[in-house]
Every structure is written in C-alpha cells, then in structure tokens.
C-alpha cells in the first residue's frame, strides 16, 4: 500500500532521510520510534508530500507520490494526518472543523457531510461537543477532534506524528483508545510515537530510526525486549527511565 524505494532527502547539507526502503502493506500498523531529530516526522510527511524528496520513489496505492503529474488533492484526500499540535482551526466549531475538507475537497453535500462528521465525532466520543470551538476543549479532546477530522475524509491510511506528545499524561489514554479502536477497524496506520504500551498492544511492526536511516525493524516484543543494535538498546533504556 505504501512503498519507499531508495528514498533520500536533504535539508541543505543535512542528510535527513538516508536511503529509506520500506513496504507497508494494507492493514498494517507500523510504529516508528527513534531519538528526536532522527527524521521520523520527515519520513511520514513525505508520504503525503508535505515534504519533497530529492531522489528515490514513494508509491501509495500504485500512485507515485512525488511525480509531477500526480493528482495531489486526490492523494491527500486518501491519507489522514494527525499532528502533534492538533492544528485545529480555532475560528470554526468542532463540527465545521470536521466538515471543511469533505465539503470542499470531496464536494460532498452539506447535509451528507454533516452526517458523516457526526458519525466520526461519535467514534471519538465527542458528539455532544460538536457546537463548541476548539479553545473550549482539553488537549485530549482537541486531538480526538483532529482524528475525527482526518477520518471524515474516509481515508485508507492514517498517519500520526507523535499524537500524544503534547498532551498531559492523564489525557494520553483517551487518545490512544481511539487509535486502538481504529486498528480494530483494519485501518492502515503509521504512528510516530514512544508509547511502548500502545506499540506492544497493536503494532505489527516497530521501526527504529536514527540519523535519517532505518536502523532496525521487528515485532514490538522482539524490538523492546531484545533489540539487535546498541543504538536501539540505548534508546529503549532512555524511554524506560524517562
């Protein structure tokens, strides 16, 4: 479903993605972890072309993402993206946040889009908040709205960039619960996170990055219990003591 072939990317002199090869089949839940600055965000941002790559190829659903002729709107409509900082639109209500893209990108009629949006809000447990503005919600609730906003486009893939890192500890659980639910629906997911519990519970595979390269991959239990490389072992001990 998603494939990276010899992908390289530089920010100026910084080699931020170093020869990435990766296949993510349909329905897989992939957790990406690694130290800060290792290129995790950049990696998933390339999947919907929020970042450009300098060479190699990324293919999503048989579409070459970084080809000039690719219909970006259509591609992006199929991929939901959840940011660390939520990035909700503060001047719109929760419902308007969720409806904006379905109405304007997919051109779904308002009544229909509203129905879909309410379903997605129900899925994240926030139906009764549909009329309020994001500022009136807690961080955890805002992130759940952001997830509903992504789901409202009925994407085939959901990308998460540290969805719980900006949250107070007591709110992390509610967001992870929503994500676990998504897994049970068979959604293909790439999740950048250091939440080991989440990874062990639902991830098919953990991918460890350092300095722009994929250093190690394995099942969650393999990776967390018996890391193959020293770098991964050091990293795991760091998130454990944290």
């Amino acid at each position: 479903m998603i494939e990276f072939k010899n992908v390289n990317k530089w920010f100026g002199k910084l080699h931020v993605l170093n020869n990435i090869n990766l296949k993510i089949p349909k329905g897989e839940v992939l957790v990406i972890c690694g130290p800060s600055g290792s290129g995790k965000s950049t990696l998933i941002r390339c999947i919907n072309r929020l970042e450009k790559i300098q060479n190699g190829e990324i293919i999503v659903n048989n579409t070459p993402v970084h080809d000039k002729l690719t219909n970006l709107t259509k591609l992006r409509a199929e991929i939901g993206f959840v940011f660390q900082q939520f990035h909700l639109y503060p001047h719109m209500t929760v419902l308007q946040n969720v409806m904006l893209a379905p109405v304007n990108v997919k051109k779904i009629a308002k009544a229909e889009a509203k129905k879909i949006a309410m379903e997605k809000l129900e899925q994240v447990g926030l139906t009764e908040k549909h009329g309020v503005h994001p500022a009136q919600l807690s961080g955890g609730q805002q992130q759940r709205v952001a997830i509903a906003r992504g789901l409202a486009m009925s994407p085939e893939i959901m990308l998460f960039d540290e969805p719980t890192s900006a949250l107070d500890p007591e709110m992390i659980g509610e967001v992870l619960d929503v994500m676990v639910n998504l897994v049970s629906e068979g959604m293909t997911m790439c999740v950048v996170t250091h939440e080991m519990g989440f990874a062990r519970k639902v991830a098919n595979r953990v991918l460890f990055m350092d300095e722009g390269a994929i250093v190690e991959t394995g099942t969650p239990n393999e990776f967390f219990d018996n890391p193959k490389t020293d770098r991964a072992a050091t990293f795991i001990s760091m998130i454990l003591t944290h």
Partner: peptide, 25 residues
C-alpha cells in the same frame, strides 16, 4: 503555519486555504 499544513494535508488547495483558514483569522 500548522493550520495551513493541516489544510494542505486534507487536500485543500491554496485558494481554499486562504479563504477558509487564513482570511477569516
């Protein structure tokens, strides 16, 4: 800027991002 990225990621084009996200704010 993050809101614009959110708009981009959901498929809104430049004019739509201006109209629905930037200008009202």
């Amino acid at each position: 800027q993050g809101q614009l990225e959110a708009g981009t990621a959901s498929g809104l084009n430049y004019i739509q991002r201006m109209r629905f996200i930037i200008l009202p704010q």
